[in-house]
């Protein structure tokens, strides 16, 4: 793929917008269609696109394996952590009303953090799955 000039230029142009759109989908998900699951898949798709055009080693340099693996766990921990934070502040598990003084604002913040956790886990799991599959093919060639 590395020899296709047009593909490389178009990919370089498109990938920032793909990531930007993923962030829009994530943070505008309260008001329009969107949310953590969709945005996570889009982030992963953008990086997989990069890996397809520029090669797997380049993508692995950009987003290292160790980072992806720790992000997988971080997302779930963030989600569960929001629940525990609600407990510590005197509510039930995953009770967002206590996160801020105003219940509605607390709900908003809780949803925001939870969606962020979902985004992190989903995108890193998808990316890791792709790395593992693609890396396996590389080992087979060598």
């Amino acid at each position: 793929m590395r020899d296709f000039f047009v593909l490389r230029v178009i990919a370089k142009l498109l990938i920032p917008f793909m990531l930007l759109f993923a962030l829009y989908v994530e943070f505008h998900g309260d008001f329009g269609p969107g949310g953590g699951f969709q945005a996570g898949v889009m982030v992963a798709a953008a990086i997989i696109f990069y890996a397809l055009i520029f090669g797997l080693p380049a993508a692995r340099m950009l987003v290292p394996d160790a980072l992806v693996e720790s992000l997988i766990a971080l997302g779930v921990l963030l989600y569960a952590g929001v629940g525990v934070a609600g407990m510590l502040l005197g509510g039930n598990f995953l009770d967002y009303f206590v996160l801020m003084s105003d219940p509605v604002a607390g709900q908003h913040r809780g949803i925001f953090l939870v969606e962020l956790g979902v985004l992190i886990t989903v995108s890193s799991v998808m990316l890791k799955i792709f790395y593992v599959f693609a890396g396996r093919g590389r080992d087979a060639i060598e």
Partner: peptide, 14 residues
């Protein structure tokens, strides 16, 4: 209750 007009997001996350 949640300040989120997209009901799908509200039900999903809250």
């Amino acid at each position: 209750e949640t300040g989120v007009p997209n009901v799908v997001t509200a039900v999903l996350a809250s």
